[in-house]
Simulated assay, not measured.
Amino acid sequence: MTIYLDHAATSPVRREVLEAVWPHLAGGTANPSSRHGPGVAAAGALTAAIADIARVLGCRPGEVVLTSGGTEGDNLAIKGIALARPRGRHVVTSAVEHPAVLESCAALARQGFAITVLPVDGTGRVDLDAAAAAIRDDTTLVTVQLANNEVGTVQPVRELAGLAHAGGVPVHTDAVQAAGVLPVGLADLGVDAVSIAGHKVGALRGTGALAVRSRVPVEPLLHGGGQQRGRRSGTEDVAGAVGLAVALRLAEQDRLARERDGDALAARRDAFVAEVLASVPGAILTGSDEHRLPGSASFCFAGISGESLLVELDVRGIAVSSGSACAAGSDEPSPVLLAMGIDPDLARSAVRVSLGPATTTAELATTAAALRDAVGLVRSLA
């Protein structure tokens, strides 16, 4: 049986989500915009789900936009806010963002926007002084992730938001990796827009949400029937929204329990990291020791290929990744690791281990031993 340690790529759908969405998939076929009885029932379920999502995202229900996931949420926030604000044509982001953010910024650059990419230190944290210097009179948006999807480093988003707001600039954060692990509400973070993806918290793939303050104008990317207050036209996915609401509620309950009772997930992760560093020669932990997601551990192993190591671990029944799932199968060094100043050859050896709430100490002990043996084998064959 495979030990699954790739939760940063996607997490299993929660049973409670499956039970909640089944009635809407099996029999709830009505369009929530229809005026007949089944349509009104679907609209009621949709309204209730959005209200639940809004509670977790710290906003009003009318400030929630249902999306197909993190990529769409990032695109809508970045392009939508930048194109809707007449203040200027300058966007600030960071060098370690998810491709959905960086490619959205690149698309704006092709339309004449200036893009400033903030540097990061060796742990992947944004330089606040560089951020303060980057904000200009014509800056229309700052977009910096809450937590990195490859090394798990958590960014000083609240501090960044304070710098941006002092200059009258709205802030968006990609919180896809942080939902269910850190507070992601608009007020919690002091931001104006936050995007999340359902499949990272146990909801169905293809679901997500963008929370955006009503005072912040957003140019829609999809035009049509005017659903969701015109910000995203198209018939709403009632089942997807219901599942997202259930998953977010349960993930938030788990997060609060960890805050109250002590973070056992982080403790298991720390013990695993210590075992790997002690038993695998040349193992290097990447990312921030202090500011890191509790389920994230990313390593480099000098002298080997990360992709070769993944294959060997897969043979041994261990499912991990070499970094962003969006770059799976590539042996090119991670842009995130390069931005952190890691040598390209060393960056090619990266392996990301991401735990889930149900990951056990026994599974991690097995994984640490498998890593030790697999690294030794791959090195001997190099």
Rank of each mutant, 00 (worst) to 15 (best):
E72A: 01
A239R: 15
V120E: 07
T47Q: 00
N31R: 09
T360Y: 05
L277P: 08
L250I: 10
F272L: 04
D289P: 11
V194T: 06
T67K: 14
P281R: 04
A166M: 11
T360S: 12
G80Y: 06
R292H: 14
V242N: 13
V351A: 01
S214W: 03
V273F: 08
R352H: 14
V353P: 02
L364G: 09
G152P: 07
V181L: 12
A8Q: 03
A51M: 04
V238K: 14
R316K: 09
V56S: 13
S33R: 14
A339H: 00
R255I: 04
A247K: 14
P220H: 04
A178Q: 01
R110T: 11
A365W: 08
A209C: 07
D289Q: 15
S288K: 15
D289M: 08
A100I: 05
I81T: 02
D263Y: 05
E103I: 01
D270W: 06
G122I: 01
R213H: 05
T71L: 05
D289Y: 09
V216K: 07
A109T: 15
L182T: 05
A187N: 09
H36K: 08
C105W: 01
V194H: 05
E275V: 00
A20Q: 13
P357A: 08
A197S: 14
I78Q: 10
T140R: 07
A374T: 04
A264D: 11
L210A: 05
R110N: 10
V218M: 02
V280A: 01
L102Y: 04
A297T: 01
S34R: 10
V101M: 07
G70H: 11
L293K: 05
D74I: 09
V191S: 07
A82S: 15
T366G: 12
P294F: 05
S305C: 14
R268Y: 04
E307P: 08
G180I: 04
V336H: 02
V65R: 10
V375D: 01
E150V: 11
A178I: 05
